[in-house]
């Protein structure tokens, strides 16, 4: 069944890379997938979005995503700035990079919210505030759409071994953290 994911972040946080890695992870799992950026003029720090589609059959559609099943927010400062919940399905799920819990965030929505302090984990393990791979690990932990193994393979495919190793460590931490909570 077709699943649509929208990723929000800011230029420089690897928003587009996150979408590509997620699509690659789904592909590694044996599914069809598609990743594309919101086609804009990307600048460091400006809000932007990227999109992923995952399905067990070939994906034809080539439009932007208006009613996502999942939303991932890479930057906590986007809350209240960008309507990250726009169009999300009622039974959808939003994963936010935030140190606060879902209850503390008190967002005005009925959709399920999960949070993870991804920037904190990124600084700890990667030494850089780039939360994208950690959020993918967390996403694998809370949804059935991609597997932890798929995320790990996509990271290995993409990065040199040293960077890949650290990212995999961070991804595993995020995955365990989410699994432990649910």
């Amino acid at each position: 069944m077709l699943k649509e994911i929208r990723i929000h972040g800011r230029g420089g946080q690897g928003v587009v890379t996150a979408a590509e890695l997620m699509a690659q992870a789904a592909f590694e799992d044996g599914k069809y997938s598609q990743a594309f950026p919101f086609f804009g003029s990307e600048r460091m720090g400006s809000p932007l979005a990227s999109f992923v589609r995952i399905n067990d059959k070939k994906i034809k559609i080539k439009t932007q995503i208006y009613n996502p099943d999942y939303v991932i927010v890479q930057d906590p400062t986007l809350l209240g700035v960008v309507d990250v919940l726009a169009g999300i399905k009622e039974n959808g799920l939003i994963l936010i990079n935030h140190e606060k819990s879902a209850q503390e965030l008190n967002l005005n929505t009925k959709v399920k919210i999960r949070t993870i302090p991804a920037t904190k984990i990124a600084l700890e393990i990667l030494g850089k505030p780039i939360p994208n791979t950690i959020l993918l690990g967390a996403f694998a932990g809370i949804s059935e759409e991609i597997s932890l193994e798929g995320v790990k393979s996509s990271i290995k495919e993409r990065f040199s071994s040293e960077i890949a190793q650290k990212n995999i460590q961070a991804v595993e931490r995020a995955y365990q953290l989410m699994k432990g909570e649910s």
């Binding site: 979408a19 699509a23 690659q24 997938s33 598609q34 594309f36 950026p37 086609f39 080539k62």
Partner: peptide, 9 residues
């Protein structure tokens, strides 16, 4: 973009 920048199998 719709094709040049889209990742798909």
């Amino acid at each position: 973009f719709l094709l040049t920048h889209t990742y798909e199998p």
